[in-house]
Every structure is written in structure tokens, then in C-alpha cells.
Simulated scan of single mutants.
Amino acid sequence: MTRLLLVEDDPTSCGFLHAAAAALPARVDIAGSVADARRLATHAPYDAWLIDAHLPDGSGVALLETLRAEGFRTPALAHTAAREPEALEALRAAGFALALSKPVSAAAWQASIRQITGAAGARPDAPSAPPGAKAGLVWNTASALRAVGGDAGNAAALRELFLGELPGTRDAVVRAAGAGESDAVRQAVHRLRAGCGFVGAERMDAAAADLHAAPHSSDALHAFLAAVETTLAQR
């Protein structure tokens, strides 16, 4: 059976990506940090590493560079909340065989894993799901269902997981903004945006994108907090 290492710190993203990869079928180990990923990658053989570009203790690029310097040649796929073509190209230039934007459909995720592992049924990169509209819905149910292959139960479970994490993310953003720590604000909202895509939280995603672009803006922060409250209220 294919053995994969999934490196992802966002619970919503991790839940979806793990389930989709396991359905290949595959054995999927999970690491939530650079340190955990390095420990697992250097002590067990994997057919592929599936590495988030932004992690709590470093970057996916730095992790891959370290593992390559230690002699490991396992195929690696990068996944990121960034959607700009240049961001994806930079990840490929850094040595990742593929780079995908989240949210990504289960079919595209599985096809990409097959592609880098050489498994039967591989096909060229499938496009990731489109980002939500700027003035989008609070919940785009159709988008969420597309992401999970039409499984309404899975979509509902991911939404509850997302909602459970949202207050903690809000509080982390408020603390970082109050301390003037723009990098911490960006890290928190970048992580949030991946989850937004998987559950169809379009309005939350748009507000998070604005705050990521202007972490010192009080208007962007207020809009972000308003989007959090609206999202939590419309469960």
C-alpha cells in the first residue's frame, strides 16, 4: 500500500486532505510542524511527502531543502492557501514536483498524488477549486460539496471543525494585531484561508485575504472580525 506523509497544521484542511488521500487507498501519517515532519520523514520510508508551504515553525520550502540536503529523494507535493500563479511557480522552482492551491477537490488531490508516485490512473494536474467571489456568500454550500466530492456528511463535519477553530484564530489575530506583529497576523489568516475554501466560507475568506494584504489596517481588522461574527452566527 502507498505510504504518504501529510504535513499540515490546519485541522480543517488536514481532515479533508487526510481522508481524500487515505481513500486512494493509502496509509497516511500526519505531521503538524516542520520538526514533526522531519522526524517522521527521516525515520520511515514514504512514497511521497505532501507538504504545506506555511507551517508554525517554518516553511515547506525550508523543510524540503533540509531533507534533500540529508540525501532524501522522496517525491514532494506542495499545497498552499496562496492562489497566485507566481507563488505556485516559486514552490515548483524550489523542488516540489507539484504545487496545488487549497481548496483542491478530492479528485484533483488524489490524481496529483498518483502523478508524483507513478501510481496507475495518474493524469495531469487538475485545477483547484476557484476562489470565492469578493462579496461572496457566508456559506457557499455548492462549493463545499464540490470540494468533498458531493458527500454532505463530510462537508457538514468539516464545517463544524472549521467553526470550532474559528474563535481561536480570531483571538490569535486580535492579539497579534494589538502587538503590531504583522507577520503573525498574516500567518494566522493564511492558515484560515485554506479552511475557508474547503467549507465554502466565502465572505470569511475575502475578509481574511484583505487582512493578509494589509495587516496594519484597522478597517481590514474590523471587517475581518465582523466576518467572523457573521460566520459564527450563520452556522
Rank of each mutant, 00 (worst) to 15 (best):
L67C: 10
L67Q: 03
L67P: 00
R68C: 04
A69P: 00
E70S: 14
E70H: 14
F72W: 15
F72P: 03
R73V: 15
T74P: 07
P75C: 09
P75W: 11
L77A: 03
L77Y: 06
L77M: 07
A78W: 00
A78G: 10
A78M: 08
H79R: 05
T80Y: 01
T80H: 02
T80I: 03
A81E: 01
A81I: 04
A81P: 02
A81V: 06
A82V: 02
A82G: 07
A82Q: 05
A82P: 00
A82K: 08
R83P: 02
E84C: 00
E84N: 03
P85F: 04
P85D: 10
P85A: 09
E86L: 04
E86T: 11
A87R: 08
L88Q: 12
E89L: 08
E89Y: 00
A90F: 00
A90G: 04
A90R: 08
A90T: 03
A90V: 00
A90H: 05
A93G: 13
A93P: 00
A94T: 10
F96C: 05
A97D: 15
L98Q: 14
L98P: 00
L98W: 02
L98H: 02
L98Y: 01
L98R: 07
L98K: 07
A99S: 10
L100E: 05
L100R: 12
S101K: 05
K102C: 08
K102N: 14
K102I: 04
P103F: 09
P103Q: 09
P103L: 10
V104M: 07
V104F: 02
V104W: 01
S105R: 13
A106G: 14
A106E: 11
A107I: 11
A108R: 06
A108C: 11
A111L: 11
A111I: 07
I113P: 02
I113C: 12
R114H: 06
R114Q: 15
R114M: 04
Q115L: 15
Q115A: 14
Q115C: 04
Q115Y: 09
I116Q: 06
I116R: 07
T117N: 05
G118K: 07
G118F: 05
G118E: 08
A119K: 01
A119L: 15
A119H: 10
A119Q: 14
A120T: 14
A120H: 13
A120I: 11
A120Q: 11
A122S: 14
R123E: 14
P124I: 09
P124E: 13
